[in-house]
Design a protein around this nucleic acid. Structure first.
Lengths: 178, 178
DNA sequence: TCAGAAGCTGGCCGATCGGTCAGATTGTTG
DNA sequence: CAACAATCTGACCGATCGGCCAGCTTCTGA
């Protein structure tokens, strides 16, 4: 890890700019400008613009996979609670990456970087519904997943720790009301 | 209305392409290609690319304004129910435009087209919370608003009428569970 | 010391972007 | 018919995009 100081700087600057302006809305030039290097240097450390995105997504994907692996060992109620807590934590920690998923959401085609995450999202979705197969249950789970993501990424940074707990509390109430 | 056949065609093609690939991801050239005219013709009917977006947003904005005006005359429970039904209807009817808002969500800066809609969203937000000022109530309302939008625009067209009712039913349950 | 690897850069490439413009074509009206 | 406006187009503009490359520094280890 930390193969190069410049490389890390490029990653963190890119993460912020991608989250702020979207993937298509960010150029290699603006990344290079903020880092304080040349565009060629950015492409020296990464094969392409897409390679930066792939490198950014990787850690979030691993943590998500770890969460879903843990969920699959739990029964309905425990899985739902753990999914809520875990997802609230993840979405707050990887706010920028979540924003990227929303940004790329419209273009269903060219996102090989996100493909491996889909099964994990599916697991999370079902865990939110307490392993139920009731359509309304699943729909509400879907609404909550997307809603939480969107809300978190539209809140200012300084409220995030509070927001994580509030979001988990609210989700628990909405998803367990029979 | 219907000032020109070509103009209308440009609007409908642009609506579909914007919803499919995002605003930044759509070019005047691809719009012109699908319409079967030249890029210059597109810019003859509209002053700029942004002008197309403005023309597309207008009807959705008017319907949203009409809904919120109606809401403000109702008390808590009635307002919430009406907000849920009305929003489900709107978000299904203007699926493409909702997608555009999500697409532009990341770029907080350059969206004069969406600015006038903000107060109406605010009203809708509070109506979803039944005019309550409880933070958790408001947060859940926010989650549901964003979640419903995201879910609807990620469902295939043929399920939309069913989805509208299902989404309203689920939202009512989640928002009225005390 | 010095060769080679690693890091970095300016300059360039073809493609595409949104937008402009002069002029051709078409339709309407007196 | 002529005259005028509406419609449409190809050619072109400057800017920017992602990416490539030759070559310049800087670091490192035998």
């Amino acid at each position: 890890m930390a193969r190069s100081k410049t490389r890390d700087e490029i990653l963190s600057v890119a993460a912020r700019q991608f989250a702020a302006a979207g993937f298509k809305g960010t150029s290699l030039q603006t990344i290079a400008d903020e880092v304080g290097c040349s565009k060629a240097t950015v492409l020296y450390h990464f094969d392409s613009k897409d390679a930066i995105l792939v490198a950014l997504i990787a850690p979030a994907g691993q943590d998500l996979a770890a969460l879903t692996a843990r969920l699959s060992t739990l029964d309905a109620d425990a899985a739902r609670d753990a999914a809520i807590e875990g997802f609230a934590e993840l979405v707050v920690r990887y706010r920028g990456e979540v924003a990227l998923i929303f940004d790329q959401m419209l273009s269903i085609f060219d996102l090989p970087a996100f493909e491996p995450l889909w099964p994990d999202f599916e697991t999370l979705h079902h865990a939110f519904a307490g392993w139920s197969s009731d359509p309304d249950e699943l729909l509400l789970a879907e609404v909550m997943l997307a809603g939480i993501s969107s809300v978190v990424l539209n809140h200012p940074d300084d409220e995030l720790p509070t927001l994580r707990d509030a979001v988990a509390r609210v989700a628990r109430r909405a998803l367990t009301s029979r």
